[in-house]
């Protein structure tokens, strides 16, 4: 966020302190000593001065990873923005989670290495892993209501996962392909996220959206249709 004549307020995600805000003074000047390092999607070693206000001040910056290739691809940029937004919305200030930090770094590294992977399947896989880190991972192995392992035909955000034919009252239909996508996306590394038909991805997105609405009380922007 731009602030004052040449400053910027930054929202950072750190492994030790979770989400923190800091002000970078003079960063918008062409000759700033910070250069372009304080743009979004950089992984950095930062020195922050903690004064009396809630806002820390950036005093020194060193790049760990700049991810230059993702900045040249519109879809990769969009995927990175959605990933950062999801982390910022789901995790409050002062909630450190090293796993989430590494997950976000992995996502940015993947989008930089293989920008063509950016898209709906990748964004949904990232959100599913984020749900897992936040403790909201949906039950996918058995009916979330009765424990039945067969005939899983729907998904219920309220129940917290897939449901069987007998328990599907408040659920929406979940195709086998959507179920398989969610299981694979949760179980495999981000770089191995499988593709799935558009209908299956739409159902997986609805499942994630309902889970977030019921359990975290928030709604993320749709991941798009690519």
């Amino acid at each position: 966020m731009r602030y004052g004549e040449a400053d910027r307020i930054l929202h950072l995600y750190t492994p030790d302190r979770g989400r923190v805000s800091a002000i970078a003074k003079g960063v918008r000047k062409a000759k700033s000593r910070f250069g372009g390092r304080l743009e979004p999607f950089f992984q950095l070693n930062l020195v922050l001065y903690e004064g009396r206000s809630d806002l820390m001040t950036v005093t020194s910056v060193e790049t760990i990873a700049a991810y230059p290739r993702l900045r040249e691809d519109a879809a990769a940029l969009d995927g990175a923005a959605r990933a950062c937004e999801a982390v910022a919305r789901l995790f409050d200030d002062g909630e450190p989670h090293a796993g989430v930090y590494h997950l976000l770094a992995n996502e940015l590294a993947l989008l930089n290495r293989e920008p063509q992977r950016a898209g709906r399947a990748n964004s949904l896989a990232f959100r599913l892993k984020l749900l897992l880190a936040a403790g909201f991972a949906p039950h996918l192995a058995a009916c979330a209501s009765c424990g039945e392992r067969e005939h899983l035909v729907g998904f219920s955000g309220a129940a917290g996962g897939v449901v069987c034919g007998a328990c599907e009252a408040s659920a929406f239909p979940l195709a086998e392909e959507a179920h398989a996508f969610m299981v694979a996306a949760l179980g495999r590394p981000l770089a191995e996220t499988p593709e799935a038909p558009p209908l299956a991805l739409a159902q997986a997105e609805r499942a994630i959206t309902e889970t977030l609405e019921h359990h975290a009380h928030l709604r993320l922007r749709p991941v798009g249709t690519r």
């Binding site: 000759k31 700033s32 910070f34 250069g35 372009g36 743009e39 790049t63 700049a66 230059p68």
Partner: peptide, 9 residues
């Protein structure tokens, strides 16, 4: 003081 992206470009 140049950042890696700027210097790379």
């Amino acid at each position: 003081y140049a950042d890696e992206v700027t210097l790379g470009r």
